[in-house]
Nucleic acid binder design. Sequence first.
DNA 1: TTGAAAGCGTTACCAG
DNA 2: CTGGTAACGCTTTCAA
Lengths: 340, 340
Amino acid sequence: MKRITIRDVAREANVSVTLVSFVMNAKRDSDGNLICPVNADTAKRVLEVASRLGYKRNFAAASLRSGRSNTIAVIPNDISNKFFAGISRCIEDKAKSLGYNVLFASSDEDPSRLEAALDAVTSHNVDGIIVAPCAGGDEVITRLLDYKIPVVLLDRDIDTLNGVGKVLLDDWEAGYLATSELLEKGYKKVEMISYSLGISSFSERESGYIGAMTDRSLKGKAKIHHTSYAKAVTEVEKIILGCLDRGVEALFLPTYSLSAQVLTVLKKHKLSTPKDLALVCFDESDVYSLYDTTITHIVQPLKVLGETSVEMLVSMIEGKAPEKILLSPELIRGGSSESK
Amino acid sequence: MKRITIRDVAREANVSVTLVSFVMNAKRDSDGNLICPVNADTAKRVLEVASRLGYKRNFAAASLRSGRSNTIAVIPNDISNKFFAGISRCIEDKAKSLGYNVLFASSDEDPSRLEAALDAVTSHNVDGIIVAPCAGGDEVITRLLDYKIPVVLLDRDIDTLNGVGKVLLDDWEAGYLATSELLEKGYKKVEMISYSLGISSFSERESGYIGAMTDRSLKGKAKIHHTSYAKAVTEVEKIILGCLDRGVEALFLPTYSLSAQVLTVLKKHKLSTPKDLALVCFDESDVYSLYDTTITHIVQPLKVLGETSVEMLVSMIEGKAPEKILLSPELIRGGSSESK
DNA sequence: TTGAAAGCGTTACCAG
DNA sequence: CTGGTAACGCTTTCAA
């Protein structure tokens, strides 16, 4: 079946292609009336013909001519990651409601893959980009700004980057909140395991941890263990056993994957929380409610993060200036942080 | 910064736009040499100029002219769903390695949203579509075939649909395998909770369950409880309590979300598995290894499913005929199905 | 309120 | 091997 073009519609409706274009691009006002400089009857006829013929706009042609694409790109670290999968869905829904399509690409914590992803989406003339940058991504993102493509940084900040929108969790607050919970419940030897990824979310959560320890004059006892995605599986176990030897009472874990690893180790060694080790974990998971003891954790406002980032990007596409928005974390109390 | 076009490159390299186009589209052979009808030195110069100027192909123009887009669409039910998030990543990677970009859109188990998503992606001239159809989606998918757009059905079959590729889990086998595990461990009163979504994966898993019961002459004892996404939260609890009253010994749960609900109910009522109720669950989750008793579950070969669907789609784009591929499920044994 | 015509940047065709 | 040129389908002036 040959594809129907704007010409076919124009011929069939006895009008010019211009009129068809006007009608197809007309927005509707609150009463559902088309707002365009076309006679209402003509417009109605065009609409009827278009739908009868099964006309579909050819985006490539429209985009080529207009320079716009009504498409935004979302580049998380890894779309299969629990956090981003949830957020992606919110972004998709919000974007759709504002009339935008969404192109996804993962960057895999690798600046060169990020660059490839960025190249791919800019080739598609996307109108704007939401990106969760990886360490070392500042340079390639800066290059985008030369092309005047609006960019919103999601979840992770890059301090040196200006002229981009930022929608972030207040990570410092999250670290402070998590740590304070443990301290207030009477734990003093509270340590933290973190990833050495060089991205703001982790360093801020670490600072929040230090801040809370300092406020209780426990700065001397503060200790942050660093590991990496790749090595976590083997290193977390060593870290935990070491902590227990040294009489550590509680741990703050700033992300889901670390939390899951720690729980795995506890289970393996038949250790229980909070008795052997109190915990405050991060992000949402069924695991937290189904674990033997329910787990205290910090949740991020996924939906708000996703929707706000789209709103900001779209307003930037429409010419408004970028902003920086910090959203508040929430603490969900479970048994893992109860007093000894 | 003005965007560099093929003309700028041609002028700077003192060649025609045709040559630049040839070079930019040339594939490389195994030695890394360009395969195109252009003098090697000229090609090298063009490449050098293009990279120096920062040339990026304008996809809209290329797509408009060629009718192709080097983009495939993936339309799962819900991108944030654990199963699809994982598979999406595999699809993305595989597609990228074959030179395709990926456009995602969720259908939300709603035929009209599926249609909207399909419209959106076809407007983008996608070369092919991978879709996990929802109930009632056959009609809108059939319409795609009129446009000769290659389609691969992933995860869910629609029997009446021909001329499309199919990459599915052998769901009957999965149901049979799960049920047999319980029966072989000595459980006789084995029931199942399933979703009434009207899609093949569930009905096949149900048939497999019935098959296994029948083979052990327990067909009379077979019972399948149906619920829906929306009502599961309240209904699962009633179903479980009812089962225990009636002396049911074991349950087969054909998907993750049901499994999680059941575990929640068990925990709430301080029931333990397999003592009070043996279980075989579905899909992968940290929950299965971290639950008090480890959970026996059926896993799907996510990576193979994703990669195979892309391979099949691309081969269909290249003109090959569609196939139907069934992949085997795997049983991971845990404590929840151990003998009483 | 309507229509004619000029491109947008590529690729594909044809000629040399 | 190389180059000129006509589309592709749309949006956007501009003029009527």
